[in-house]
Amino acid sequence: MNEYTQKIVREHADGWNELWRQSIHPWDKGVPSPALIEVIEQKPIKEQIPKEGNVLVPGCGRGPDVFYLGNANRKAYGLDISPIAVDQARQLQKEKNIPDSQAEFLVDDFFTFKIPEGGFQLIYDYTFFCAISPDLRPAWARRMAEIIPKDGVLITLMFPLGDHTDGPPFAVSVETYQSFLDANFDCLLIDDCTSFEARSGKEKISVWRRK
Results as ranks from 00 to 15, higher is better:
167 G>R: 03
176 T>P: 01
39 V>C: 09
12 H>Y: 15
187 C>F: 02
184 N>I: 00
13 A>S: 14
91 Q>G: 03
134 P>T: 05
70 G>L: 07
137 R>T: 06
172 V>W: 05
166 D>A: 08
70 G>C: 03
62 R>G: 13
210 R>G: 06
74 R>L: 04
13 A>T: 10
207 V>M: 08
205 I>L: 12
52 E>G: 00
140 W>D: 03
28 D>H: 08
12 H>F: 15
150 K>C: 04
51 K>V: 07
107 V>E: 04
164 H>L: 07
36 L>Y: 01
81 I>K: 01
95 E>V: 08
188 L>T: 06
85 A>D: 11
186 D>Q: 11
196 F>E: 11
26 P>A: 09
152 G>M: 09
80 D>G: 03
209 R>W: 06
31 V>C: 06
164 H>I: 02
62 R>S: 15
200 S>L: 08
116 P>M: 10
102 Q>R: 13
90 R>C: 12
115 I>A: 10
38 E>A: 07
33 S>P: 00
97 N>S: 15
111 F>H: 12
42 Q>Y: 11
79 L>H: 05
177 Y>D: 00
46 K>N: 11
49 I>Y: 13
66 V>Y: 05
117 E>G: 02
130 C>H: 01
113 F>I: 12
179 S>L: 09
14 D>V: 04
16 W>F: 14
42 Q>L: 08
36 L>P: 06
150 K>V: 13
131 A>H: 06
202 K>W: 05
104 E>M: 11
40 I>S: 09
67 F>Q: 02
76 A>H: 03
160 P>G: 06
135 D>K: 13
149 P>K: 02
113 F>W: 15
157 L>Q: 07
35 A>K: 03
118 G>I: 00
48 Q>C: 10
183 A>L: 11
6 Q>C: 12
1 M>D: 10
88 Q>W: 12
181 L>D: 02
150 K>Y: 13
155 I>C: 08
16 W>G: 04
74 R>Q: 11
207 V>Q: 09
194 T>F: 02
172 V>L: 14
158 M>D: 04
160 P>H: 09
98 I>A: 05
111 F>K: 08
189 L>G: 01
76 A>G: 07
98 I>T: 13
100 D>G: 14
128 F>L: 06
13 A>P: 05
139 A>E: 14
68 Y>M: 08
119 G>E: 12
14 D>A: 12
141 A>Y: 10
37 I>P: 03
29 K>P: 01
161 L>V: 06
37 I>H: 01
177 Y>M: 11
203 E>H: 03
6 Q>K: 15
173 S>P: 07
58 P>Y: 02
58 P>L: 05
41 E>W: 04
57 V>Y: 02
176 T>R: 11
110 F>M: 12
56 L>E: 07
36 L>N: 00
106 L>Q: 12
166 D>I: 07
16 W>Y: 15
11 E>C: 04
42 Q>S: 13
174 V>C: 04
196 F>L: 11
139 A>M: 13
26 P>L: 10
59 G>T: 01
99 P>E: 08
76 A>Y: 04
31 V>M: 11
20 W>G: 07
73 N>Y: 08
107 V>Q: 03
33 S>G: 03
138 P>G: 09
